[in-house]
Design a protein around this nucleic acid. Sequence first.
DNA 1: GTATCTGCAAAACATTTGCAATTCT
DNA 2: AGAATTGCAAATGTTTTGCAGATAC
Lengths: 138, 138
Amino acid sequence: MEIHIENVGEYLKNSGIKPSYQRIRIFQYLVENRNHPTVDMIYKALCAEIPTLSKTTVYNTLNLFIEKKIVNVIVIEENETRYDSVMDVHGHFKCEKCGKIFDIDIDNEHLKDNRLKEFEIKEQHYYFKGICKDCANK
Amino acid sequence: MEIHIENVGEYLKNSGIKPSYQRIRIFQYLVENRNHPTVDMIYKALCAEIPTLSKTTVYNTLNLFIEKKIVNVIVIEENETRYDSVMDVHGHFKCEKCGKIFDIDIDNEHLKDNRLKEFEIKEQHYYFKGICKDCANK
DNA sequence: GTATCTGCAAAACATTTGCAATTCT
DNA sequence: AGAATTGCAAATGTTTTGCAGATAC
């Protein structure tokens, strides 16, 4: 689940997205901070460098990224939409104490052996919740 | 993933919930219609029989059910919270065309063989999206 | 110079909260 | 009567939309 993008502008262009300054910075944020951020986290982080940035643009941009399939939505929690630039199939674990979200490798071959054969699957989401190692040792 | 509840009132009482008329009808709806409904679906369906019902009560009741662990939340989709009275671990497949949600048996033993061992898991959610058999044949 | 992109303000929703009225025992 | 429950109206929070001004090619 690793991606290495030297040139974000090129990457966006190849995905059919005009690489505006805001779009580049938002995508760069997702790639550099693999923190599965909310819109608010992205907005607050980038506001420092782009004082004119609006939340509308963050929403518009993320929706464009999703449409062009370079960003995934994570809805592990009600009323907390998060975004992920890693497009490989993987799972997410959210710690109930610290709130951090961890990436989980999923061996999903075994899951295919059930009723799922009847469906044409386009998306797979694996979410787990509990207590992470660090919080358990406190 | 089958539950058979003859007496909803008793079931609620045993779960530490006072079985008011509204609570019984809402839980009954969930058990009888395994359609993973939204708040709005429950509200509209029950309004016919309980004209004075308010959405606040549906929200309050579902939150109580979740707290008492007799109902699960399904957040397969952004801005579309759904509810399920089946508490066994299982997955959900949502058809992008007809919008229907199907229950999926999950053999999750194989998933345990990865980084998940590091976490104390309390909840597991398996969501899939795509096209169901019926919609594929149209 | 024309298309597109951005960002403000308002609208649209979903959910929660405060509180008064109702219900149940 | 007393405690819990219900339901209205208002508040909150998130995401979308309309549109005017800014930007890019």
